[in-house]
Design a protein around this nucleic acid. Sequence first.
DNA 1: GTAATAGTGTCTGTGAGACACTATAAA
DNA 2: TTTATAGTGTCTCACAGACACTATTAC
Lengths: 239, 239
Amino acid sequence: MASYDPAEFPPFAVTVDIVLLTVADEFSVMLVRRGVDPFAGVLALPGGFVLPDESVEDAAHRELAEETGLSASALPGVHLEQLATFGDVGRDPRMRVVSVAYLGLSRLTPLPTAGTDAADAQWLPVSTALAGHLAFDHREMLEAAVERVRAKLEYTTLATTLAGEAFTLGDLHRIYEIVWNEELDLANFRRKVLATDGFVESTGAKRVSTAGGAPATVYRRGSGTLLNPPLSRRPRAGH
Amino acid sequence: MASYDPAEFPPFAVTVDIVLLTVADEFSVMLVRRGVDPFAGVLALPGGFVLPDESVEDAAHRELAEETGLSASALPGVHLEQLATFGDVGRDPRMRVVSVAYLGLSRLTPLPTAGTDAADAQWLPVSTALAGHLAFDHREMLEAAVERVRAKLEYTTLATTLAGEAFTLGDLHRIYEIVWNEELDLANFRRKVLATDGFVESTGAKRVSTAGGAPATVYRRGSGTLLNPPLSRRPRAGH
DNA sequence: GTAATAGTGTCTGTGAGACACTATAAA
DNA sequence: TTTATAGTGTCTCACAGACACTATTAC
């Protein structure tokens, strides 16, 4: 019942790890290659310690800026939310570390070249990352993040965050197909997006594709955040 | 980039707090009255320190058993899942404490009388708890838990956890109405529940209500966990 | 009898899925 | 031309919501 002596608290360290996801040709995650032990040379999620005088939330924003090397102009367009906390006893071989994982969503942005202040960050396809070896329990974090995003695309407008400031309905459709790894009828997708208040709004501009086809209307994200009723993955289960 | 000295980590304490919810005449939460400062005499969520040799998850289960005083036979029927982590700087006036909040769902169970090993625990209506004063940032935790449960009743069969081992469709319907604080057409609710594979299964038994009415079929929870398509709260938004 | 609960049947409107079709661009 | 994309129209089926109706119990 919280009858403890503040001087006798167990020794913990608290870190944040950022699962920053984007859609390029594939669904991709930002990873850094570790320079020191443990897991030196192994790919890991960007992250670091929570400082004594900052909130966990602030630490996540700080690490997002510092470790990913995203430019200041790109940061406001990034969605960042708490994902889950990982607190198994042996997850860090050196000491007891509890880590709060955050999920970030961003449009595809170029990464700083190696040698800058930021870590040696890179975008790697999620499937490649999951097929390989990741430091600590970062694989679990990545899996949780992927499932969260897939689920959230069903009932929120978050895909517009992955699309960036200006996009066509074809772009948005492609994002859904890549993240869900599943085909979606384009005509029905268009109807659904356009029929949902606040999902997207037209900029009036048109954009021509390099691959041919008629010019497409360019949209920006709308003010809405929730889809009701939601879009659905898989053809309805049950039968 | 994780190039830190394990001996210099910032001093953190890590706790777990349990938001255990149930449905009685009202949607209720288990609270304990604090015996020591800070917040001595104030209502708080049950919780406590994560020990050095146990995972955060294990700590949550241990606190659920110890602090709530639930009998060993009732514990297996409790659903426990991680809710969110609270890590603001000043949330505990004594020192830096990061707390991992867990959401628990249980059928209504009698609480141990005061004086036992367990804390002075009590069920309090959520509305009452939110109208009053709670220790630390426990009000935020409670609000997050309530919203999570309301959302999960839409697309999971979790309501059966609140109903216990044997229940009628009337019981289940009542749980939805109380948690959502909203009326649901009983006939449509019945059709939906019975049409969803794995939601409930009949025990064959009948139960008569003390308030009159025909005997009702008694059900137990089914093996399914997800509702697809989901039940929906509010009449569809949008228009 | 009345009140309360259990349970069934039926109509309607919305919207998702399937898919045919036209239009406009690049190569 | 062919190929790829943009965009519209239409039919059908599933299902949620509304609600009328019967049945069986307590009081």
